[in-house]
Computed example of a mutant assay.
Amino acid sequence: MKILSPEFSAHIASGATTLCWCWRIERRDGTVLGFTDHDNSVTFEGTTYEAAAGFTASDITDGLGLSVDNLEVTGALSSATLTDDDLAAGRYDEARIAIYRVNWADASQRVLMRSGSIGEVRRTGASFTAELRGLAHYLQQPTGRLLQRTCDADLGDRRCGVDLSSSAFRGEGTIVTAISARRFKVAGIDTFESRFFSRGLFAFTSGASAGLKIEVKSHTKLRAAVEIELWRDAEGAPAIGDAFIVTAGCDKRFETCKARFANTVNFRGFPSIPGNQFLTQIGRASR
């Protein structure tokens, strides 16, 4: 049930309304953006909701019980703050969103209709469609610890304890040859063994993608050549001489934790847990 102020209720009951939709988006990096389907910008609570031509939303779908409520927003990539590069880089993944119904003639008259997060984003040419998931979506996500053989901590976090700023787990270098937007030959990390940085984090420190961080898919060392492949394309075209910092990766296995990081005291898995093979063994009588 939505509770409206007396002034807003009277405005709606008047039969001649000046209503619009406003969307407030807060990305995980702290950036806050506002958009509205009105033809002029609307401002309230310190956020300016930019008038976005062609920015429309589907009907809000409500479900009974704990089913997920959702809707879709469709728009054009015409705003200076809503770019194709940001969508491709995943900067809007799991962004928090609040949807308001507002009297654009008096923005103090408004009501919060829905809150949740951005789910799947589909792009077609210069337009996009974003799925907005309700708060019930989080009830479907697994929480707590799982009993599994591999570690459930993130390398370098508080539970893991490995210091990734140490030179033993961190390398700096430059791109020598850009094979593609995600694969290149590099110099400066020749002393590290092959696959040491696989599953690690690659951060551009100069060039068109400066500041961008992408997970490493593979790190191979063949004779004098060292090659890095990322899981996705860099935002800008990598060029010869672009500098980077890359940190070690971890496959979450107990053996890796022991041999590479000497950190078994903080291992957060259960390496001795019986597997499916143990459960399906047939008992045999001893002689």
Rank of each mutant, 00 (worst) to 15 (best):
residue 280 T to A: 10
residue 130 A to W: 02
residue 256 T to P: 10
residue 92 Y to K: 02
residue 162 V to G: 10
residue 59 D to M: 09
residue 274 P to N: 03
residue 94 E to T: 12
residue 210 A to D: 06
residue 198 S to F: 08
residue 127 S to A: 06
residue 119 G to L: 11
residue 269 G to P: 04
residue 200 G to H: 07
residue 266 N to D: 06
residue 170 R to I: 02
residue 269 G to C: 10
residue 91 R to N: 07
residue 55 F to W: 10
residue 122 R to H: 05
residue 181 A to F: 09
residue 216 V to F: 01
residue 195 R to L: 13
residue 11 H to L: 00
residue 251 D to V: 06
residue 54 G to K: 02
residue 169 F to H: 15
residue 172 E to H: 06
residue 263 N to E: 13
residue 149 R to W: 12
residue 108 S to E: 02
residue 28 R to Q: 09
residue 186 V to F: 00
residue 179 I to T: 08
residue 101 R to W: 07
residue 147 L to R: 02
residue 120 E to F: 14
residue 13 A to F: 11
residue 49 Y to T: 06
residue 27 R to Q: 07
residue 125 G to N: 03
residue 135 L to H: 11
residue 215 E to C: 07
residue 157 D to P: 04
residue 142 P to N: 13
residue 265 V to F: 09
residue 138 Y to T: 13
residue 32 V to A: 12
residue 136 A to S: 15
residue 142 P to I: 08
residue 182 R to L: 12
residue 96 R to C: 05
residue 80 A to V: 05
residue 220 T to F: 10
residue 254 F to H: 09
residue 105 A to N: 14
residue 79 S to P: 02
residue 77 L to R: 00
residue 69 D to W: 11
residue 138 Y to R: 15
residue 279 L to F: 08
residue 213 K to Y: 04
residue 192 F to V: 07
residue 152 D to P: 04
residue 27 R to I: 07
residue 74 T to V: 15
residue 114 R to Q: 14
residue 54 G to V: 05
residue 113 M to L: 15
residue 117 S to T: 15
residue 284 R to H: 05
residue 85 D to Y: 00
residue 254 F to I: 13
residue 182 R to T: 08
residue 107 A to T: 14
residue 56 T to W: 12
residue 165 S to M: 09
residue 113 M to S: 08
residue 245 I to M: 05
residue 118 I to V: 14
residue 164 L to R: 06
residue 29 D to Q: 05
residue 271 P to M: 11
residue 275 G to P: 01
residue 257 C to K: 10
residue 261 F to P: 11
residue 108 S to M: 07
residue 8 F to W: 01
residue 145 R to A: 14
residue 36 T to W: 01
residue 135 L to N: 07
residue 260 R to L: 06
residue 19 L to I: 01
residue 275 G to Y: 06
residue 30 G to H: 04
residue 271 P to C: 12
residue 280 T to N: 14
residue 62 D to H: 11
residue 13 A to R: 14
residue 200 G to R: 07
residue 282 I to F: 08
residue 233 D to T: 15
residue 96 R to P: 00
residue 93 D to Y: 06
residue 41 S to R: 04
